[in-house]
Amino acid sequence: MPASPSSSAQAAREALAVRLTHLRKDAGLTGKELSARCGWHPAKTTRIQKGEVQPTDVDIRAWCAACDAADQADDLIATARAVDLMYVEWRRNHRTGMRKTQEDFYDLYAQTGVTRAYVSNVVPGFFQTPAYATALMGAITDFQGTPNDVSEAVAARVARSRFLYEGGHRFVVLMEECVLRYRVGDAETMAGQLRHLLTVMPLPSVSLGIIPFTAKRTMWPLEAFYLHDATRSVVETLTAEVNVVQPRELADYRKAFGELTKMAVHGNAARALINAAIGSLG
Rank of each mutant, 00 (worst) to 15 (best):
V234E: 13
L250C: 04
G51M: 02
R19N: 15
I278V: 09
F143E: 15
R181F: 03
S35P: 10
T129C: 02
T96Y: 13
H41N: 15
K262N: 12
F163N: 05
A131G: 05
L238D: 14
M219H: 14
N148L: 07
R116C: 00
C178E: 12
A276N: 11
A256V: 02
S35C: 13
P147S: 06
T146Q: 00
Y182V: 11
S4P: 08
I48T: 09
L208C: 01
V53P: 09
K50Y: 11
G185F: 04
L180P: 02
R195W: 04
A153M: 05
M263D: 06
D229M: 03
G125R: 00
T261H: 09
T46Y: 13
D149K: 05
N243K: 03
R181P: 02
H22T: 14
T46I: 12
I211F: 00
M190H: 06
D75L: 12
L203M: 06
P55V: 05
V53D: 10
L108A: 07
C67R: 04
E249M: 10
R47V: 06
E152M: 09
L273P: 07
W40Q: 07
R19M: 11
D142Y: 10
F127C: 01
D104A: 14
A43D: 15
A17I: 08
D107V: 15
L194P: 07
L180Q: 02
S280Y: 05
L198N: 01
D84L: 03
M137D: 03
M86Y: 03
A133P: 08
Q128W: 05
A156Y: 08
T141H: 05
V179N: 02
I60M: 06
A159V: 08
K255T: 14
G192L: 03
W63N: 04
Q144P: 06
F163S: 04
W220T: 14
E166V: 01
L108V: 14
R254V: 09
T79M: 11
G125W: 02
